[in-house]
Design a protein around this nucleic acid. Structure first.
Length: 819
RNA sequence: GGAGCCGUGGCGGAACUGGUUUACGCGGCGCGCUUAAAACGCGCUGAGGGCUACCCUCAUCUGGGUUCGAAUCCCAGCGGCUCCACCA
């Protein structure tokens, strides 16, 4: 064993050793219970960054620990290889994505290995591989058969200067990210997944999984179910014409004094008087431009509207009310029309004040207090001036009014969701081709003809990058004549391929299932493998995917279950969302701020084990952590201390058997086993490492039996193994063992050594700490009370007082309540 | 505006289910080793005070409450972070 702790000489050697023995292969313990530990699929940029390192440290500790607990562990890896960055780089630099991506993967993979992550590389997959994405196409066709994917006309972002459609992410404050032109809305056809059909199942499933509360809350909000009533407001002077509105507050309907409808509501132009039409058109145009120019995330615009000149009838009061066109009514939500109740809705109130529309209160607070005069009263209460419903509480009135509407045939209960269908068409090259063909003869309406399964995969054509990836014009694939022109699968005549590709979130929706069976060329994965390994036991990744990937992959799983591919309908039992790693300045790491620290630097300077310990020790897994060079050195010092501790005691423990009669160190050792085990089960890595430090400190101070010391050192190394595997392997060898530590079972705590025969317990008088006494574990309450009261310090506080009550908490404290 | 999370030393953070607040690490101070420095080792380190080998008072954002006992539970407020945002 070397004198000095030198990770550079240790780490690559053990990495090579593990690989040569294939120690991390899943499936080599067929009878054992399984554990599927997964880190979110990375996009292969050229270098691993700290956020990645953090995820892999977490999954690796879990994977290494689970193997030691006898589980058959699946800890796979792969690459989210399709996507915008590679294509944009290609547009800029002319390098084909298919050329750059493998280079990036190789470099990233090197980093993962040098961090000592125990991956089963036989699972490795890349989503840009036709052997993978053919199954995206296969899923697309199955979903098409079931009506789960459909073609629709939807509003998309369009840059008039680049003449191309942009993804939402490519619109920055309403402008094109590349040329800065104002983005306009355009309606073009696209393919969409019917995720909304699963809204309720997606909500329900959230109750069955162990996910962070905030992610669950975000998904609930995102799905955004609201229960209400759809009801018709008849139009005056136009028989059988009515505006249908959606409301969650049917109880306020007697206070509906006007209606507000979306500017592009189809009935507006149909029903508006001729004199108003030009003005309405102009207003609609203005709103359309404003919504785009303001962009996402900006403050809501000033509420504006125009009287459409249409009059409707409130179906409950029978009164005539005006119909306004308003910029705050969304065409895409509910029915695109609302009944406005200014007395009980803040938005309606603001609008009514601005345009001097009547405000009629119909709800009063249930506690008989006065409703506010200068703003809307939005809480539930008791109805007033509401005909037969007056006096009813809101909760009850909502239902009664809905029932009445239904009885009269003018309304029905309805549910609305915030969730929209998932538009998947992308005008991009570097993605999965959509397996659809358009034939003018067999498909004159352009609905799309599915490519037969036998023709899958529809492979991406090889291209001349400079010619095709210009970032302008039609979708890149449309320019590849030899590819886009094809035969109709029905008539064999000339046809065109769908030139758009799939959203890359399709790739990540099911990759975790492909890991089970990555080379299967007959099906996405076998049912037997699915039954063996699913669901994912622990899934680790960033919370930024809370309502993107983490929603899509739940949806996909439900579809896979319906297709009979797997038994489960929730992909991940437990989710861990790790916090971000901030730079030295406490700001989020970013290239533009120049505060990025690369794991590479740390590995080069201090070794992978130091990097791992630092990342896991600095903060609990779910919390953000600050980068600290001093703390990194602290972990390096700790490993150095352990090294010297063992190195310096080799002679003392030479030939000595671990164990011996119980003593303080042995008890400490076995309690540490118990503690670290619990902490690992609860994913408390930071405190687990503290416990190791405590054991190391105790062993350093030890001057008793060498057998106890040997045991302490061996256990310390065994417990260190999941966290700092290279150092632990080397030390294990140093202690005279020949088998790999990675194969060794987790140590068991001796139950006899984790219980103390005496405890130090706190003595309180009226809840204040006044002393401490040592009591035998066997002592009963009366004995404890007795000893405590005889303690001289405590006795002083009890002097002359009457003890009214004594609380004894076993092993912890005794509290005298005196007066 | 809505939803969620959080507030403990100089700093990162411990504290199991309400039971001795500040484990562990960092930083700081002192000492040792050294010609010297680095590295390493040892000791001290919440604040204030006293009769200073000992003891007291006060401290978990602020203010209330429940309790024998609150960092932990409840109410109100202040501050910070994240996500969604005209959702009818």
């Amino acid at each position: 064993m070397q004198d000095r702790y030198d990770p550079k000489s240790i780490e690559p050697r053990w990495q090579a050793h593990w690989a040569s023995k294939d120690l991390f292969r899943a499936g080599n313990r067929p009878g054992a219970p399984k554990k599927y530990v997964l880190a979110m699929l990375p996009y292969p940029s050229g270098e691993m960054h700290m956020g990645h390192a953090r995820v892999y440290c977490i999954t690796d500790v879990l994977a290494r620990y689970a193997r030691k607990r006898g589980f058959d562990v699946l800890h796979p890896f792969g690459w989210d290889a399709f996507g915008l960055p590679a294509e944009n780089a290609a547009i800029k630099e002319g390098v084909h994505p298919a050329e750059r991506t493998p280079r990036n993967i190789a470099s990233f993979k090197k980093d993962v290995i040098s961090l000592g992550i125990s991956v089963d590389w036989s699972t490795e997959l890349s989503t840009s591989d036709p052997a993978y994405y053919r199954w995206n196409q296969w899923f697309f066709l199955r979903m098409l058969e079931r009506g789960l994917v459909y073609r629709r006309r939807a509003k998309v972002n369009f840059c008039p200067s680049c003449n191309t459609v942009l993804a939402n992410e490519q619109v920055e404050e309403g402008r094109c990210w590349r040329c800065g032109s104002v983005v306009v809305e355009r309606e073009i056809p696209e393919w969409a997944f019917r995720i909304t059909a699963y809204a309720d199942r997606l909500l329900e499933g959230l109750n069955r999984i162990d996910w962070p509360e905030r992610v669950v809350a975000m998904q609930r909000n995102w799905i955004g179910r609201s229960d209400g009533l759809e009801i018709d407001f008849a139009v005056k002077g136009a028989r059988r014409k009515a505006f249908r509105v959606f409301t969650t507050r049917a109880d306020t309907i007697y206070g509906a004094t006007y209606m507000a409808v979306a500017p592009d509501h189809p009935l507006v132009m149909e029903l508006a008087p001729q004199s108003k039409k030009a003005g309405l058109q102009a207003f609609a145009e203005k709103v359309r431009r404003a919504t785009k120019e303001v962009g996402e995330g900006a403050q809501a615009a000033e509420k504006e509207g125009v009287d459409a000149g249409i009059r409707a009838k409130n179906p409950f009061t029978g009164k005539e009310i005006p119909v306004w066109v308003a910029n705050f009514v969304l065409a895409g939500y509910g029915t695109g029309a609302v009944m406005s109740v200014p007395a009980h809705d803040e938005r309606d109130y603001e609008f009514a004040r601005k345009y001097d529309l009547p405000i009629v209160p119909v709800i009063r607070p249930g506690d008989d207090s006065e409703p506010p005069k200068d703003k809307a009263y939005t809480d539930y209460g008791v109805l007033m001036d509401s005909g037969e419903f007056s006096g009813m509480p809101s909760e009850q009135a909502r239902l009664a009014i809905a029932a009445e509407a239904q009885r009269r045939g003018i309304g029905k209960p309805a549910v609305n969701y915030h969730l929209r269908d998932w538009g998947v068409s992308r005008q991009r090259y570097w993605g999965t081709p959509i397996p659809i063909v358009y034939c003018p003869k067999d498909d004159p309406e352009g609905k799309g003809i599915p490519v037969p399964d036998s023709d899958l995969p529809v492979k991406l054509p090889d291209i001349d990058v400079k010619e095709v990836l210009t970032g302008m014009g039609e979708p890149p694939l449309a320019k590849v004549a030899s590819w886009v022109n094809t035969e109709c699968p029905i008539c064999g005549g000339p046809a065109r391929r769908e030139a758009e590709t799939m959203d890359t979130f399709v790739d990540s929706a099911w990759y975790w299932a492909r890991y089970l069976d990555p080379h299967n060329d007959r099906e996405p994965f076998s049912r037997a493998q699915a039954d063996r390994w699913l669901p994912i036991d622990v899934y680790v990744g960033g919370p930024e995917h809370a309502v993107l990937h983490l929603l899509y992959f739940r949806f996909w799983t439900k579809v896979m279950q319906e297709l009979g591919l797997c038994a489960i309908d929730e992909p991940a039992q437990k989710l861990v969302t790790q916090g971000i790693v901030k730079g030295r300045d406490g700001e989020k790491m970013s290239k533009s701020k120049g505060n990025v620290v690369s794991p590479r630097e740390i590995i080069d300077e201090f070794g992978a084990d130091t990097a791992r310990l630092f990342i896991l020790f600095a903060a609990p897994a779910e919390k953000d952590m600050d980068w600290s060079d001093e703390q990194v050195q602290g972990q390096h010092r700790f490993l150095g201390r352990v090294w010297r501790l063992i190195q310096g005691n080799l002679q003392t423990i030479e030939g000595v058997k671990a164990g011996g009669p119980p003593d303080d160190l042995r008890r400490r050792t076995h309690k540490t086993i118990l503690r670290v085990t619990q902490q690992l089960e609860r994913l408390q890595f930071n405190t687990a490492i503290s416990s190791l430090m405590e054991l190391s400190n105790a062993a350093t101070d030890w001057s008793g039996a060498p057998g106890s010391l040997r045991e302490a050192l061996e256990v310390l190394v065994q417990l260190l193994a999941p966290f700092a595997p290279h150092t632990a392997e080397e030390l294990w060898r140093g202690l005279g063992h020949t088998e790999e530590l990675s194969r060794l079972q987790w140590p068991d705590a001796d139950p006899a050594l984790v219980v103390d025969d005496a405890y130090q317990i706190a003595v309180q008088v009226n809840g204040k700490l006044r002393g401490e006494v040592q009591v035998a574990a066997s002592a009963n309450d009366a004995e404890i009370r007795d000893m405590a009261s005889r303690d001289p310090k405590v006795a002083g506080w009890l002097q002359g007082k009457t003890v009214k009550k004594v609380v004894v908490v076993p092993k912890r404290l005794v509290n005298f309540v005196v007066a």
